[in-house]
Structure formats: C-alpha cells, structure tokens
C-alpha cells in the first residue's frame, strides 16, 4: 500500500484533466498525421516532377517548327545533362488541351507547338541546356517543372512547420495542465501529506506517486485522443479515395504516430508531475 492508499487516487478535477490531455493528444496526433502526410506527398511530387522539363517550339511556321523540333530532339538525346528525351506526340498534347478547347483540340488544322519532354540528370543544369538549345532551335522554350513546383513546396513546408508548432503547443499545454492538477492534488491532500511528512515520508516517494498516477492518466487520455485522431485521419484519407487510405495504412509512420503520441503524453505527464511535486515541496518550509 504505502503512500498509494494514504492518498486515494480521486482528487477533484481528474476528469476534466483527462479530457484536456485527451484533447491535446488528439490535436497533436492529427497535426502529426497531417504534417507527415503532406510532407510525404510534397516530397513525392518533388521527386516525380523536380527533375523534369518540357520544351516547346513556339514557331508559327509549322514546317520550321518541325525542323527545329527534330534538331532539338537530336541535341537533347546526346546532351550529358539530359537522361531521357521524348517527343510528345501531337495526340497527347491535344488530349492535354481538350479540357480547355473541347472538340476543337482534335482538329488536325489546329496549330499545336511541337513538344519534347526531358528528364534532367541529377544536378543537370536546365539553364545550360536551354543555352545549347537556343543555338540549334531558337524558337525552343524550356519550362522547368521545379520552377512552378517551388511555391507548392514552400506552402507544404509552411504547413509542416505549422503542424510542428501545434505539436509543441499541445505538449506545453499538457505540461501546464498537469502542473495545475498536481497543485490541486497537493492542496486537496494537504493535511494528510503534512502528517505523512511528520511521520517520515520522503519527498521522492510523494513525487514518485504523482509521477506514476499522471503517467497512467497521460497514457490513457493519450490513447483515447490518438485513437480519435486516427479515425478522423482515416476518414479524411478515405474521402480522397480508398487507395489513399490503403496507401497510408501500408506506411510505418501513421502507426508510429498513433502509438507514439500516447507514449509521449504519458511520459510528458509523468515528468511534469514529478517536477511540479518537487517544486511545490521545495517551496515549503
């Protein structure tokens, strides 16, 4: 029994405290899941598109355009900065434009600029490629995909940073709530704690008692909050598509978040309780 029976585990405010820790864990888990998912998809997008570029021959004279396109393809195929080059068939371009032009896109008379798709070698310099191209095909316009991807990537980075701030704030709020709970607990049991001290109770035993109780509270509330966040995140992924949900479930990190958040909530609550008890007791005469 020792101190556990001396200070029954039923001080006022325990329920609201569990609710608050649970809410913090919910927010933290959701922010982590969202942030990591965003980071992963932005990273995937950057990997897919970051090293590719499209070259268009913008020349009104169709014959000249075709000649320049041929010369450009020949140069690009041999260029050391380019891994792969492929002429985009006219039908493919027409299909891309169909949403804007409707049936007109299929009109063989429609002037469509010839296009070439390339993948740059790692570290390949798109500007140098463009300079070499300008010599053989002055009408070539190089569109590096990473250029228009950059704002998207910056936006994704900002969202990931916001998620990190949310996680930090929930951790801070959890520690503060635990400190308040410990104060309330120490106050509620003040007469009993005073007697226990006079009978030889040690501060460290008291600190350990509160640490254990809040560790448990953090784990339980954290599990509930984390489970809730998992359900919300799963239904969001399912709204995107069954594939997105299945894809996420195959990753390791969503599971790490769902398990890690309750563990972290328990550890944080236990530590905050220990520190608060020690501080409160040290302040006593």
């Amino acid at each position: 029994m020792s101190l556990d029976a001396v200070l029954p585990d039923r001080e006022p405010g325990r329920r609201p405290l569990l609710l608050l820790i649970g809410a913090m864990a919910f927010l933290a888990a959701l922010a982590l899941l969202g942030g990591l998912a965003l980071g992963a998809s932005a990273g995937g997008l950057a990997r897919q598109l970051g090293d590719s570029a499209t070259i268009q021959i913008v020349e009104a004279d169709a014959e000249l355009a075709a000649t320049e396109a041929e010369r450009a393809l020949a140069l690009l195929t041999g260029d050391p900065a380019v891994v792969a080059a492929r002429a985009v068939p006219r039908a493919e371009t027409a299909q891309l434009l169909a949403p804007w032009l409707g049936g007109a896109a299929d009109d063989p008379a429609l002037p469509l600029p010839p296009a070439i798709e390339i993948r740059l070698a790692p570290g390949g310099d798109a500007k140098a490629v463009a300079r070499r191209l300008a010599v053989v095909a002055p009408a070539a316009r190089v569109d590096v995909h990473a250029d228009w991807l950059a704002p998207v990537a910056r936006f994704a980075d900002a969202l990931v940073a916001a998620a990190a701030v949310i996680v930090a704030l929930t951790a801070l709020a959890t520690a503060a709530v635990v400190a308040l709970g410990v104060r309330a607990g120490l106050d509620a049991w003040r007469p009993t704690i005073d007697v226990a001290h006079l009978l030889g109770a040690e501060d460290k035993a008291l600190a350990l008692l509160f640490q254990r109780r809040y560790l448990k509270a953090g784990l339980v509330a954290g599990l509930a909050g984390s489970a809730g966040a998992g359900l919300v995140a799963a239904s969001l992924a399912a709204a995107i598509g069954v594939g997105a949900l299945e894809g996420a479930a195959r990753q390791w990190w969503p599971w790490a978040v769902l398990v890690g958040v309750p563990v972290a909530a328990g550890a944080l609550a236990g530590l905050a309780a220990r520190v608060s008890v020690r501080a409160a007791l040290r302040a006593q005469p």
Binding site: M1, S2, L3, V6, L199, G200
Partner: peptide, 15 residues
C-alpha cells in the same frame, strides 16, 4: 480515511 490498522502501520510503511 484509513483504518486503525493502516493508521498505526503508516510510519512503518513510510519507512
């Protein structure tokens, strides 16, 4: 909230 037994036992248990 402790029985007589637990009250008397307290100093031993605390030690």
């Amino acid at each position: 909230h402790l029985s007589l037994f637990d009250n008397v036992a307290l100093p031993l248990r605390l030690a």
